[in-house]
């Protein structure tokens, strides 16, 4: 941080490429004029070195070596879910701002400890919820707030995907399966749009598609503090040869109309003679760029982050309640105090 250009930049590191979203985030960091991706840390050396080469940056194996540096302002944590807490707390104690991949953690205790550590250290903690920043989601929020559909009466939503396999299906590292992976995005968007909390959850979930030790299908039924009732399908129900990873669909039904978000529907359908029958190519990637830019902006200008650790914890809490309901077959109250 010697010359004036450098001083205006937020110097970032990515800690672990365990979660594939790190690739999107790295690309965005490289494209932002006021951010720089300085180093990638990954205990999986092959994975980390590969990423560092792709994104033209440095590599270290041990993330603690990154935290020990005084020329790093912020870290983006994309490790396995269960390791978010350890890395976030260490980063906070080293005075680094944190953007943490979702779900924020796998237990409420971990999530709270992360929030507390960042607060104590005076660093920012943002949960990586890019869907909230997606242009169509913003338009959905504005249309609802403008009263375009009258009074919202019900929400029917889903975040289906292909099964990510790898550590995502290891209960110790992921903290769960499809429900843990795919509850939090939509719940965060709904909490954001309606400025309301989920108050009750009922869920059915099971392992019916793959031979894995976690749930691969999930259906979460919920009530919100504003009276809204909804459902969310979290299933890894897209076959592995599906043209894209999955999608986020949120349909809000009001007394004057219906708004339907299909956030990842902006695809070109491409059929190649020598390829699969067809594949989809995104026209634009909206969500990641706006989310990363918002984090960088908050760090640079010392402003509050747009999506807090508390937001991450509340969304995760709904997934945990869903697991409790899945076991008891009873509706579970979600206490947000």
């Amino acid at each position: 941080m010697t010359d004036s250009t450098r001083a205006a930049e937020v110097r970032c590191a990515i800690l672990s490429f365990a979660h594939g979203h790190a690739n999107g985030y790295a690309g965005v960091l490289n494209s932002l004029p006021d951010a720089e991706l300085v180093v990638i840390a990954d205990e999986n050396e092959e994975r980390g070195r590969g990423a560092a080469e792709r994104f033209g940056t440095a590599f270290v194996a041990d993330y603690r070596d990154v935290l020990a540096r005084d020329d790093i302002d912020a870290v983006v944590i994309c490790s396995e879910n269960a390791r978010h807490a350890e890395m976030t707390i260490a980063a906070a104690e080293a005075g680094k701002h944190v953007l943490c991949e979702k779900p924020l953690a796998t237990t409420m205790d971990d999530a709270q400890a992360m929030i507390d550590a960042c607060a104590k250290a005076g660093v920012k903690l943002q949960t990586a919820f890019p869907v909230r920043f997606n242009a169509a989601t913003v338009a959905l929020r504005d249309a609802i707030r403008e009263g375009r559909i009258g009074t919202p009466l019900a929400v029917i939503s889903r975040n289906p995907g292909t099964c990510p396999m790898d550590w995502f299906v290891d209960p110790d590292l992921a903290g769960g399966g499809a429900v843990m992976d795919h509850t939090v995005h939509v719940i965060d968007v709904l909490r954001h749009i309606f400025e309301a909390e989920v108050t009750e959850v009922y869920a059915e979930a099971d392992t019916r598609i793959y031979d894995i030790p976690v749930d691969d299908v999930g259906l979460v039924m919920f009530r919100m503090s504003n009276g809204l009732r909804g459902s969310l399908d979290t299933s890894w129900s897209r076959p592995k040869n599906w043209p894209i990873w999955g999608g986020v669909e949120i349909e809000v039904i009001g007394d004057k109309g219906v708004l339907k978000l299909d956030a990842f529907n902006d695809n070109l359908e491409i059929a190649e003679i020598d390829g699969p029958s067809y594949r989809w190519q995104s026209v634009e990637h909206s969500g990641d760029p706006e989310m990363i830019a918002a984090f960088v902006h908050a760090v640079k200008h010392d402003e509050p982050v747009k999506v807090t650790g508390e937001d991450g914890m509340r969304a995760m809490q709904v997934a945990l309640a869903a697991y409790e309901s899945m076991r008891t077959h009873e509706p579970v109250e979600v206490v947000t105090g």
């Binding site: 019900a154 029917i156 099971d206 019916r208 259906l219 459902s231 039904i253 009001g254 007394d255 219906v258």
Partner: peptide, 12 residues
């Protein structure tokens, strides 16, 4: 074992 989600609407 099948899980199903059904919706019905007179609001579309």
């Amino acid at each position: 074992g099948v899980i199903a989600h059904l919706d019905a609407s007179w609001a579309h």
